[in-house]
């Protein structure tokens, strides 16, 4: 045991760079020649890294909670104190507001559920932007850059035209994704569906993103079973999983 502890001490001093050059050489030579010592070294290093990782994961939970509370603050707003002795004026105002809110909700709820869910969840994909380089004027923009520029500025028809030309030269998954989103913005859902479906067929990139937007397209087209199946497919993804699970729950 004494020997074992001694070895561990050497290993720790080596890891902390507390050995002098001569001692370091000796240990490195021993690590090369003694498999037992080498495996002891690796095992020890593994435990240390695991301890560091455990600490970071605990802190990650702390950040997730902090982030969650930020999101809650944004949606719930501040709580208003409860008045124990009511007087008629605030009550009258509240009643008037209640009537107004109820009317708005009534009108709002008349829109089909799928439309509401689509409106709540659809956020157009962020394009990478035209990314102009120094000295590059508008006349020298590639089709892809022109497409991104038009897309970013809400000129979706122009963007689609440029994207189509760009795809003839060189196929790119991000361009497809932006093109599908342009169709969604133009409410041409059948075309958006084709773009996303062919993306999934032809590309290996941005699969989750394509599935997410395809699910939203199905939703808008009232193809609920397909929407559900597509959402299930990405419900375990780390990037879109939360959104997908939330939407699935709302659909139920």
């Amino acid at each position: 045991m004494e020997n074992f502890m001694n070895d561990i001490e050497w290993i720790e001093r080596y890891l902390d760079r507390r050995l002098d050059p001569e001692e370091m050489k000796v240990l490195e030579k021993r690590l090369e020649e003694e498999p037992d010592l080498r495996s002891k070294y690796q095992e020890h290093l593994q435990l240390i890294q695991g301890i560091r990782y455990a600490h970071l994961r605990e802190r990650l939970e702390q950040l997730k909670t902090l982030e969650q509370s930020k999101s809650n603050d944004l949606t719930s707003g501040e709580e208003t104190p409860i008045r124990l002795i009511p007087n008629w004026k605030p009550l009258a105002v509240a009643a008037a507001m209640l009537v107004a809110v109820t009317s708005i909700l009534f009108i709002y709820n008349r829109a089909p559920l799928t439309d509401r869910l689509f409106a709540e969840h659809f956020e157009p994909f962020d394009s990478p932007g035209p990314g102009l380089t120094r000295g590059q004027g508008e006349g020298t923009l590639t089709w892809k850059q022109k497409g991104y520029e038009a897309y970013d500025n809400g000129r979706y028809e122009e963007a689609i035209m440029a994207f189509q030309k760009s795809q003839e030269e060189n196929h790119d998954a991000i361009v497809d994704l932006c093109m599908g989103n342009s169709y969604l913005k133009l409410q041409q859902y059948d075309k958006a569906e084709k773009v996303f479906e062919s993306m999934l067929k032809d590309h290996d990139d941005l699969v989750t993103q394509a599935n997410w937007y395809l699910a939203l397209t199905y939703l808008k087209e009232q193809k609920l079973e397909r929407a559900r199946a597509t959402l299930w497919g990405i419900s375990k993804s780390s990037t879109y999983g939360v959104k997908a699970r939330k939407l699935l729950k709302e659909l139920d």
């Binding site: 802190r59 990650l60 962020d126 990037t239 879109y240």
Partner: peptide
């Protein structure tokens, strides 16, 4: 903008970077 990602992914990058 840099990674062409959505807000959720951006937060994951941020949390890891901060840690």
């Amino acid at each position: 903008k840099f990674a062409h990602c959505d807000q959720y992914e951006a937060k994951e990058y941020y949390q890891a970077s901060v840690l």
